[in-house]
Amino acid sequence: MGEDKETPERRRERLRQEELKRNPTGNVNDAFNRAKNGNLADLAGSLGWKGIGILIFVIIIGFIVASVFLK
């Protein structure tokens, strides 16, 4: 990958840092809400495609096991 190309994670982080520089006090409310509720986009971005695949697999297996034991 060349120096002029940036990954989506790096682009997201760069944009977040720029927003913090432009509006440091406005971000406080967003940070509190994100900490309370979580953010699916951040979860998906941090896990990557393999992590998301494993997470979906585990959820499906969990439903199958629960349905077998709850019959």
Results as ranks from 00 to 15, higher is better:
2 G>H: 10
2 G>S: 13
2 G>Y: 13
3 E>I: 10
4 D>G: 05
4 D>K: 15
9 E>D: 06
9 E>K: 09
9 E>I: 11
9 E>P: 00
10 R>I: 01
10 R>Q: 07
11 R>Q: 09
11 R>T: 11
12 R>K: 09
12 R>F: 12
12 R>H: 10
13 E>C: 04
13 E>Q: 12
15 L>P: 03
16 R>K: 11
16 R>P: 04
18 E>Y: 03
18 E>W: 00
19 E>H: 07
19 E>M: 05
20 L>G: 14
20 L>V: 03
20 L>R: 09
20 L>A: 15
20 L>N: 06
21 K>V: 02
21 K>H: 06
23 N>G: 10
23 N>K: 04
23 N>D: 14
26 G>N: 05
27 N>P: 01
27 N>R: 00
28 V>W: 02
28 V>Q: 01
30 D>H: 00
30 D>N: 02
31 A>D: 03
31 A>E: 01
31 A>C: 11
32 F>W: 02
33 N>H: 00
34 R>T: 00
35 A>T: 02
35 A>V: 01
36 K>S: 03
37 N>E: 08
38 G>S: 04
38 G>K: 05
38 G>W: 01
39 N>H: 03
40 L>F: 11
40 L>Q: 13
40 L>K: 09
41 A>Y: 06
42 D>M: 11
42 D>T: 08
42 D>R: 09
42 D>Y: 03
46 S>N: 13
47 L>N: 14
47 L>T: 07
47 L>G: 05
48 G>I: 13
48 G>K: 12
48 G>Y: 08
48 G>W: 01
48 G>A: 12
48 G>E: 06
49 W>S: 11
50 K>V: 14
51 G>N: 10
51 G>H: 04
51 G>F: 02
52 I>D: 06
52 I>H: 03
52 I>Q: 06
53 G>D: 13
53 G>P: 04
53 G>C: 13
54 I>T: 15
54 I>P: 13
54 I>R: 12
54 I>E: 10
54 I>L: 15
54 I>M: 12
55 L>W: 05
55 L>Q: 07
55 L>K: 07
55 L>I: 10
55 L>S: 10
55 L>A: 14
56 I>M: 12
56 I>Y: 06
57 F>K: 04
57 F>N: 02
57 F>T: 14
59 I>E: 06
60 I>R: 08
60 I>K: 06
62 G>N: 13
62 G>Y: 08
62 G>D: 14
63 F>Q: 15
63 F>H: 12
63 F>M: 14
63 F>D: 15
63 F>S: 11
63 F>T: 07
64 I>P: 03
65 V>R: 10
67 S>P: 08
67 S>M: 09
67 S>W: 13
69 F>L: 15
69 F>G: 08
70 L>G: 12
71 K>H: 06
